[in-house]
């Protein structure tokens, strides 16, 4: 019986999943723009890798998950965007302001770990799903359970994010890409802790992503009037932006 000829080095190097030290052969079309140029530059595919599991470790709900992921969701033109076990109810007004399409946004509650895994696997394998945001259930997933999610992600063609608590950062994970995000007063800090096929020297370098301008605080109304007793502890001297320009829109809010 004839055995197939063993591949030569050149053929092996054509494969995308062989680690090549600091330089990886990259299929450019396998990445989707993150919407953050600094983050794109640090990722192997110049964006979120498709058909791979991306693990994001957050200290708590609200530490930049939508800031990080909303641009990719906004830029996608087709496919369903599915949220499994979101930590709170997504607010329609906020999501519409961010330019997301509510008609393509589905929410699934699967609090039990078995149900979560079944839902993740089913959805990742469904061609209709382009983006999946899955929050780990109460029961922490172990290595082999995350491995199931990885295999299911490989079968799909979308972008699959698994959001876990930052306590799990120290644990080993089979995810293709691992990030840690944390919000600060002035910026969102993102640290890549693992990236298959990526430049290892880029790991653990904090990236600072800008926060929306309106989050930096307006000129507080306390400084405009004398009702500081009614609304205590508004920082009257906090600058609105680094340039010092006031972005006060309180008058606009009041005008309504």
């Amino acid at each position: 019986m004839n055995q197939p000829p063993s591949p030569n080095l050149e053929q092996l190097l054509q494969r995308g999943d062989i680690w090549r030290g600091t330089k990886a052969f990259v299929h450019d079309n396998n990445g989707e723009d993150t919407g953050h140029p600094a983050l794109n530059n640090s990722l192997v595919h110049n964006g979120w890798p498709r058909a791979s599991l991306i693990e994001i470790n957050l200290q708590e709900m609200g530490h930049g998950e939508w800031l990080l992921l909303a641009p990719a969701l906004r830029n996608s033109i087709q496919g369903l965007q599915i949220l499994i076990n979101p930590p709170a109810l997504p607010f329609a007004q906020g999501l519409l302001q961010a330019g997301l399409d509510l008609d393509r946004l589905l929410i699934i509650n699967a609090p039990a770990k078995n149900d979560f895994l079944a839902a993740f696997v089913e959805i990742a394998r469904a061609k209709a799903c382009s983006h999946l945001l899955a929050w780990q259930p109460q029961q922490v997933l172990n290595y082999s359970e995350i491995r199931k999610c990885v295999l299911a992600s490989n079968d799909g063609s979308g972008i699959y994010w698994l959001l876990r608590n930052s306590h799990t950062t120290s644990q080993s994970s089979p995810a293709h890409l691992r990030l840690r995000a944390r919000i600060h007063a002035e910026y969102l800090e993102v640290i890549i802790t693992k990236q298959k096929g990526g430049d290892q020297s880029l790991l653990n370098n904090p990236l600072e992503l800008l926060l929306p301008r309106e989050w930096m605080g307006y000129q507080p109304h306390a400084s405009l009037g004398t009702d500081s007793e009614i609304h205590p502890h508004i920082n009257p001297t906090k600058p609105a932006t680094k340039s010092g320009k006031n972005t006060n829109n309180i008058s606009r809010l009041r005008g309504r």
């Binding site: 709900m61 609200g62 109810l89 007004q93 509510l102 606009r252």
Partner: peptide, 19 residues
Amino acid sequence: AWQALPVLQQQALRPKWLF
């Protein structure tokens, strides 16, 4: 889903998670 956000709400500060 109904997605027509009035101008008033478009300009206001709104979070993405709601309790």
